[in-house]
Amino acid sequence: MVNALKAKAASEGFVAVGIAPGHLAPAAGARLRQWLDEGCHGEMLWMESRADQRANPEILWPDVQSVIMLGMSYAPATDPMALADHPERGRISIYAQGRDYHDVVKGALKRVAGWLAHAADVGVKVFVDTAPVMEKALAEAAGLGWQGKHSNIVSREHGSWLFLGAIYTTAQLEPDAAGSDRCGSCRACQDICPTDAFPAPYKVDARRCISYLTIEHKGPINRALRPLIGNHIYGCDDCLAVCPWNKFASAAAAHKAFLPRAELVAPRLSDLLTLDDAAFRAMFSGSPIKRIGRNRFVRNVLIAAGNSGDVSLLPHVIHLLRDPDDGVRGSAIWALGRLSPAQFGEMKARFALAEDSPDVRAEWDFGAEGNTASAPFA
């Protein structure tokens, strides 16, 4: 049965399949609770509310006997760091340059789970990312790889480029040998992080993580971190991209749904700053980027604009000082101060007195001089 299951999974585009027991070791739950107690999850409050279910599959579904963990490759054909020296372009995480992985992975999972339910007359439930499931700990338990020092799964065959999905089942399946840590003394992923988001190996503080700040975080981004974000406008691949195990990953193994769309590989900030809601939805149809909405995305683009040094962006930035969204206006003020301190005072005289948002007024009060200086992280 297991061999047939793995063959079915391979036919659906999964490059890695493993079986884990229907429970996790207590240490996994203890690490999760410590991480939550330290506030490292930031605003992701849903991780707190269902922490017990996340810590053990049996609490989420008491009937589970085995967990089938599956991995789908999105290994890139190009260097994810290639745009680091092109500040006029926006950097979009590799995973978001193709189709939304939630849809692709979940569809394939449902077909594999449906096959298993029919073939073995067992109960099944499928999960991709949004459910209270510790995919990484379960993937390690199932032998797909190990949780690296960047906290993501590392595979000997596919490097750091695996999307994970889980099938909980009532079937009693023979577990695979768990993965073992092969990071050794390497700390490349720790050292590359622009915002120093790793307080320790194997532990990420979301409050400093560029992926969290540009995707999950809804309010103004901390001023101390804005200059460090560079031209990252959605997610960050830096810690994944430098993993030495990526040398074994092949772009040929990546699912075709994740091939990058040309317009998302190296978009110009000047084009992205002009997006209204309709244009944003059209551009990112079928992309996970659509989930964060136009306002949060343009906020990110304005941070990149402020870091670019490109004064040709000033007309777009100044136009966005009138944007209906508080977050966009606030980020436009910051970008203006970075690009043209000389024009900051003029624009402040025109717009600040009429501003009714405390957050946006705080950006005007912070001033152009503050935008060009380092601010403490708090």
Rank of each mutant, 00 (worst) to 15 (best):
G367I: 07
L138G: 00
D129Y: 00
Y95V: 07
P288S: 08
T130D: 12
E157C: 09
K290W: 03
T274M: 12
E346C: 00
A197G: 08
T169F: 03
D359P: 01
Q343W: 01
L24D: 00
F163S: 01
H316N: 09
R207F: 00
I289S: 07
E88K: 12
S287V: 12
L272W: 10
A378Q: 09
H232M: 08
A30Y: 00
V128P: 00
G123W: 02
T195F: 08
S155N: 10
G123R: 11
Y101T: 12
A120W: 11
W161L: 15
L321H: 07
Q53N: 05
D277C: 03
R208I: 04
S160F: 01
I289Q: 02
C209P: 07
K136Y: 05
E58R: 15
L162T: 05
A282N: 12
D103L: 12
N56I: 05
M81Y: 10
A262Y: 03
V112E: 13
M283F: 13
S185P: 13
I19Q: 03
A82N: 15
S93Q: 06
S93D: 10
R223S: 03
I94K: 14
R329P: 05
D100Y: 03
V328Q: 09
V2F: 04
D310A: 11
E88T: 07
V112R: 09
P288N: 03
H23Y: 15
D271S: 08
S287Q: 05
V301N: 02
G29S: 09
V17F: 04
L213N: 10
A166C: 07
